[in-house]
Design a protein around this nucleic acid. Sequence first.
DNA 1: AATATTATTGGCCGCATGGTCAATAACACC
DNA 2: GGTGTTATTGACCATGCGGCCAATAATATT
Lengths: 236, 236
Amino acid sequence: MSSAAKPSSPRASPPDPPDPPDSPNPPDPTGSKGAGRRRRLSEQERRSQIISATVATVADLGYNGASLERIAATAELSKGLLSHYFGDKETLMTQTARITLDAVRNGIAATLDLSVPVPDVIRQSIHRVAAVHTTYRAELTALDQIITHLRDADGHPILGLGDYESTYLEQEKLFRRGQQEGSLRAFDTRVMAVTYQGALDAMLGYLRQHPEIDPDTYAHVVADLIIAAVQSRPDS
Amino acid sequence: MSSAAKPSSPRASPPDPPDPPDSPNPPDPTGSKGAGRRRRLSEQERRSQIISATVATVADLGYNGASLERIAATAELSKGLLSHYFGDKETLMTQTARITLDAVRNGIAATLDLSVPVPDVIRQSIHRVAAVHTTYRAELTALDQIITHLRDADGHPILGLGDYESTYLEQEKLFRRGQQEGSLRAFDTRVMAVTYQGALDAMLGYLRQHPEIDPDTYAHVVADLIIAAVQSRPDS
DNA sequence: AATATTATTGGCCGCATGGTCAATAACACC
DNA sequence: GGTGTTATTGACCATGCGGCCAATAATATT
């Protein structure tokens, strides 16, 4: 999942002389994962393979750099198949974004223990997100690219931050619980959710740009800041 | 600034028969803003005119939608001039980003009173940034687009968040002052600067998506959150 | 094994874009 | 007013892209 596709040929095969007789890959029939010159596999597998390649390519080369041809090259299959399975590029990108977003969300939410006090849940979340930066680095980059680049015919964004909406709602629920429990002070939960999300995004961006920093250490400091902001305190 | 160029002649002269005999423009020499069919003006004016058009177009149609032709149309001049003054598109975009960034920064920093206690400076800043969302809406959108879309030949980003670096340094200075003054508690100033910046960006994004929200009101709530996070407190 | 089915390919087409250039006309100077 | 300079134009070209389709070969079916 992480590195998606093979780093085989950085340069695609030339258009005119497409290696005429011999096959570019060993004649390995259906058997193992090795690819015959042509492999037929299930729609499920193809789709996820294509999406993986899309994520990898977009993450590496940006939205504009990710032409259908390049994506096909990354996935080691022909451009035509992309059209076959996804119709047009917009659909491909939208699907990729949707599925990837779900995957990342699950990756974060999966190991979260919601039974502890809210400040601890927050701390956990922040560490999880920082970890996700390592695990899903490409996915996050690709998501960002797709969201900011994908536009309708009029040139206006399709996948707004509206997809954050459900995350906001989730966070707000958590915050309200904390306020009822008394572990969190009173504040506007919507604004806090937005700000919190912004803080996490900033963390991800900074970690991306500074690979030398230990995510967990950084996450700890961020958690201290956030918790200081929301924790209920004796005085006001 | 917002709508960039003059609405003089929406349609350029036809290619083959370029209105032969009559003088198409009133004898309006250098003086006022009225446009002849061709106007010659100083390099300064042209450059800023082009950059304005670039900002407007990118903000409206996104990076990909902002072709040289469209930008030229917005500025009401020919595509060739863009190449003439800026060479290639990459240069145009880079210049636009640099200049616009400076403009926005100045717009924020200009009216800031640094003599008050640090928490108050922070509060001021947040309100200023929220205001900037209104004043420089197009500029901010364009900046975001250019930064996230502009890539070198290898497909990797050119204008990373590295341009935040100077902002971070500035913020850190402020935070340290507050810590020395005793108005701010002890925390890692770098992490705080990054988080703070993220919170502001999130605020801008949210305001952009929700025009019905009053920026000042929103800013006030955000300021409360941030200050709660950094303010020195009796216990803890 | 022979045949039918259809996933997969590679090349093609039209279009839009970025960049270039010779022609043109607006301005400055005399 | 005449003349030179050069800012500005509009058309042109090569390129790369997205989408399409007939040919092909890998399976399934008998």
